[in-house]
Design a protein around this nucleic acid. Structure first.
Lengths: 200, 200
DNA sequence: ATTATTAAATAAACAACGTTTAGTATTTAA
DNA sequence: TTAAATACTAAACGTTGTTTATTTAATAAT
């Protein structure tokens, strides 16, 4: 009786195939420039088929979003082995920006897009988000214990550093730095990260 | 022969009326959720009429965007009388945040909203934006001449400070700080501004 | 093997969008 | 009073996300 198993396998394969195609299209052309028809074309099925596997376009995005957060979380964990708390904090900032640049569509959904009124409660108990914020606070606390951030409130420091990297990421993703040549922008960003690290 | 004058007056009144209605709708529902039909409904004219006064939806957006910038520019000028460059720089940051909080709809249009693809090249020679950015750089330069920001690149400093205040503003406006009680958020923001001022 | 049942996929349609067109009022000039 | 110009609108176009009715294919039952 392997039929059921095979069917299930085929179903998840189909879902994967849709998500694959969607992610490629989203990153190439941006969420709103990707139509359901384009996705269907890419996987060589009809449009209606997409709706057998996903409730709507938003669900495709949200599934990718969850995967994005997993990726984000891992990226943050991957620098936790660094011993020196200051070096770790620097790497943390870099990892944050790198994620935003590599997966702008994910980043946009996670931190920039308007949250539809209906989905707002998903952000109220936003486990995935808070989990990563806790890593930041942990890193700052350990830097404090090592003698840095003298006389600074932990919450203020965390909020400030988050705002800072988010500022860079969101200005870039939403096209407000378009006038800056790519290479010079790279210089500015790494310069800014170095600049802010004087606060430590 | 006041006919021509009257017609011109009526034409600008109509434009104003369209812009008024659009700004209200954009603020309430966000650019992409506002349809040309909704705007037309609000001013009680047909959809086609909108296209007699504006080339397309993006042009309405851009006109509002420009006005937001005028308001913004004035707010920045209003603190230029402060003599001490450091005090002026602090006031600059505060004025920036205050503008964002007082006119979130304009701030959103100016720095957060997705720019309609067609209008993107307008950001390449973005006079209004650069004019305000020049004020920031001027203030930093004068602080440098007064002995602050030792060994820091001017462009890097300007970019960093902008990213920082934009980070705060955009996280707040796009609801990513909803979990923080209003009063505590005020504490965090002023704390963050104080924190960053250690860089001077 | 044939038939009935279920599942998978599609073609066609729907409503809503930004935009354009062709035509109707209204105002101005002759 | 008529002709020309202007202001406006109704209806349509092409695309969008989504739903439907229908067909095709695979499985189960007889």
């Amino acid at each position: 009786m392997g039929i059921k198993e095979r069917k299930e396998r085929q179903k998840t394969e189909m879902r994967e195939s849709i998500l694959d195609a969607s992610l490629k299209l989203f990153t190439e052309e941006g969420y709103e420039n990707v139509t359901m028809r384009k996705i269907a074309d890419k996987i060589e099925y009809s449009v209606g088929t997409l709706y057998l596997y996903f409730k709507d376009k938003g669900e495709i995005f949200f599934e990718l979003h969850s995967r994005g957060f997993a990726e984000f979380y891992n990226k943050q964990l991957s620098i936790q082995h660094i011993k020196d708390p200051i070096e770790r904090l620097k790497a943390h900032g870099e990892a944050y920006i790198r994620f935003a640049m590599e997966f702008p569509e994910y980043y946009d959904l996670m931190f920039i897009s308007r949250v539809p009124a209906k989905e707002i409660e998903k952000f109220e108990h936003w486990e995935e988000g808070e989990r990563t914020y806790e890593i930041l606070k942990l890193n700052i606390r350990q830097a404090m214990e090592a003698g840095y951030f003298k006389g600074v409130d932990l919450e203020v420091a965390a909020f400030s550093l988050w705002s800072f990297v988010h500022g860079i990421a969101s200005l870039s993703i939403r096209g407000r730095l378009k006038m800056i040549p790519e290479q010079y922008l790279q210089f500015l960003i790494s310069g800014a990260l170095q600049f802010i690290s004087k606060l430590y």
